[in-house]
């Protein structure tokens, strides 16, 4: 298999995982909350696309964004806001509870067999053929990932709300004393996470058009591992970690012989353990870094 092909596929998959990582890291940054329910936002987006398959594509995608954003906002407003001042373990359990509750809702509402989505399926067609075989969806993944990540960076660095988010992430109490409105900052973080989840849902349903109750779960677990590996105290290290886990999965999957591919998860997590043992602060965290940016 062509090395360039492997790298391109790896970068594209890494871009999707990076988008998931941004959603996770933003919430962790401002709330110190590891949101295991983030995957359910992606699943909600997937089901929305499945149900709106007959709609005009732009309308289906817009509805998906709305659903993911509203659900993200509702999660924070209903489940997490009142737990803001309790022990981290409690909020962690709350995210599990939200995730399992929503999975049960998907199972009851849509059944275990899944719903087929058909939005932008033409993107599966080959854009470049020959020595390299690149599908349009690969290109769209790269562009979407790049644009959304750039947009997030601009938002954080060039806007007032971005500045407030960064301040809140560095020292939430001090930021509040300086006039930063905690509710607004946290709500915006969840809204951005919702947008990221919607984008991931659209990209994934093009490649994997069957949406099941666990549609967003696996990508979220892997991205979360990536966030920890990259360094969850900073948005950019967490994002790079998410990218790295997606890239490594793709490249290792390509490198392993077909009859050895069943060992892929073992290989990836062995790598994770080695990285954590060697760089406990995160693979991309600056050596000896004392201060914490978080977003």
């Amino acid at each position: 298999m062509n090395v360039l092909q492997t790298l391109i596929d790896g970068v594209a998959l890494g871009a999707v995982y990076a988008l998931v990582a941004v959603g996770l890291a933003l919430i962790f940054g401002v709330m110190r909350l590891i949101n295991f329910a983030h995957g359910e936002l992606i699943t909600a987006g997937g089901y929305t696309l499945a149900l709106a398959s007959a709609w005009p594509k732009a309308a289906a995608i817009a509805l998906t964004v709305v659903v993911c954003v509203v659900l993200a906002w509702a999660m924070e407003r209903i489940a997490f806001r009142r737990l803001r001042n309790v022990a981290p373990a409690t909020t962690l359990v709350a995210t599990f509870a939200v995730a399992f509750t929503l999975q049960a809702v998907w199972l009851i509402a849509f059944g275990p067999q899944g719903e087929s989505a058909d939005v932008l399926s033409g993107l599966n067609q080959t854009a470049v053929s020959g020595e390299l075989s690149i599908r349009w969806i690969t290109i769209v993944m790269l562009i979407t990932g790049g644009l959304l990540l750039a947009g997030t960076i601009l938002l954080l660095n060039r806007t007032t709300i971005g500045l407030q988010m960064r301040a809140a992430a560095t020292d939430f109490r001090a930021a509040r004393l300086l006039g930063v409105r905690a509710d607004t900052v946290i709500s915006v973080a969840f809204v951005i996470a919702g947008v990221m989840a919607a984008a991931v849902a659209v990209l994934l349903t093009v490649q994997r058009p069957l949406v099941t109750p666990t549609f967003g779960l696996q990508v979220t677990i892997l991205a979360l591992v990536g966030v920890v590996v990259g360094g969850m105290d900073r948005l950019w290290t967490a994002t790079l970690g998410g990218f790295a886990i997606g890239f490594a999965t793709s490249v290792l999957g390509e490198a392993l012989p077909s009859d050895q591919r069943v060992f892929l998860p073992s290989a990836v997590f062995l790598l994770v353990i080695v990285v954590l043992l060697l760089r406990p602060g995160g693979l991309f965290a600056p050596r000896g870094a004392g201060g914490v940016e978080r977003v």
Partner: peptide, 25 residues
């Protein structure tokens, strides 16, 4: 500050190892 960073590093390591173990299980 360095102690805080190390403590956080250990916390992150434990969390990561726990996650890896969870996924492996």
């Amino acid at each position: 500050m360095e102690g805080e960073a190390m403590r956080r590093g250990r916390l992150v390591t434990r969390l990561g190892l726990a996650l890896s173990l969870l996924v492996a299980l």
